Computed example of a mutant assay.
Amino acid sequence: MQWLMNIIEQHGLGLVFLNVLIEQLGAPIPAYPTLVVTSALAQAGRFSIPGLLGLAVLAALIADVLWFYAGRRYGRKVMATLCRVSLSPDSCVRQTEGVYLRWGAKSLLVAKFIPGFASVASAMAGALGTDIRKFMWYDMLGATIWIGSALLLGSLFSSTIGELLATLDALGRWGLLILAVLLALFIARKAWQRHAFLRMIRQIRISADELYCLIQDGANPLILDVRSDFYRTDGSIPGSVLLDEQNLQGPQSLSIELGHEVVVYCSCPNDASAARVVQRLKSLGYTHVRPLHGGIDAWVAAGHPLELLGQAQ
């Protein structure tokens, strides 16, 4: 374990920079604990607090600006990619989009405190044409607040953290093994949650062709569009109803019988928004509720018609 402590002491600033950069690029390697530990070590004069703060903020800005320009160039495709690779698919769906669409660049002030939000918010800022200077100003302030809170915690609990590090050092290889196991458990828990979430979706979803057949056969299913305004400009499934999840308050929220056929669709490749609404509707007593496999993209790919804004009767 001593060799690891030596590396932290000798290369702490570089490790902080690399950890923050990797996390903000989307890897499930939390940087907050590293910031807290290095801040605690800084109290003994081993690191410079202003140096830690400056390098960490720079790393966050580099990653966020990369996501910003990716969003500006590729638009919604970037958010789709984030959904595919995220260990927390529910973090890249409508509630994340809704926060940015409501608060704009100001949401970047708290983005890094919300798992999965920072990357999506940066990409969405680019896709929506947010001014780069405004983006960088709020993003820098948000990164400073986030990193500063970690450094403050490290300074406040430096003695406790020092005792913990000394204990791990005394444990030698066992201390390193404990750290590795804790990180592995964190990643495994996220991966299992994602696996369980996607497995649930696969078991209940309906395909675009099946939905089209239901409509053609006169089954008259209630089709709910739970996309944010950002995704609705390209059109919607004919006859679908826009739904704000916050309006689901009671058993009769939809003013239909609980046994009525309901199909929910979104635009995230994992159908995460739709699946979450399906779960909520089932908890309210609706029995025939399914997410549309592939969402609006699958509907378009199958060659089925769209209803553009202003055409609904």
Rank of each mutant, 00 (worst) to 15 (best):
W3G: 12
W3N: 13
M5C: 08
I7S: 03
E9F: 04
Q10K: 03
H11G: 01
G12V: 03
V16Y: 09
E23M: 12
P28A: 02
A31R: 09
A31H: 03
Y32L: 13
L41W: 02
I49W: 12
I49Y: 14
L55V: 14
V57A: 06
A59P: 02
L61S: 04
L61D: 07
A63R: 12
V65F: 11
W67F: 14
Y69Q: 15
G71C: 08
G71P: 15
V78Y: 00
T81W: 15
L87W: 14
L87P: 10
S88N: 11
D90R: 02
C92N: 11
Q95I: 13
L101T: 14
W103K: 14
A105S: 09
K106W: 03
V110T: 13
A111M: 05
A111T: 03
F113T: 12
V120M: 05
S122D: 00
G126I: 02
R133A: 13
K134P: 00
F135Y: 02
M136L: 10
G142L: 12
I145W: 11
G148C: 03
G154D: 08
G154A: 02
L164S: 09
A166G: 02
A166Y: 12
A166H: 06
L168W: 01
L168Q: 09
G172H: 05
R173L: 13
G175R: 00
L176H: 01
L177P: 07
V181Q: 07
R189D: 04
R194E: 07
L198R: 14
R199A: 07
M200C: 00
I201Q: 05
R202P: 01
R202I: 00
I204Y: 08
R205V: 04
S207D: 09
S207Q: 07
D209Q: 14
I223Y: 08
I223E: 04
S240Q: 04
L243V: 12
D244K: 06
Q246C: 07
Q246A: 13
S255E: 14
E257P: 00
D271S: 11
A272H: 01
A275H: 15
R280E: 09
Y286T: 04
Y286E: 00
V289Y: 10
V289T: 05
R290S: 04
R290F: 09
G294F: 10
A298G: 11
W299N: 06
W299F: 11
V300L: 05
A301T: 11
L309V: 11
Q311F: 12
Q311L: 07
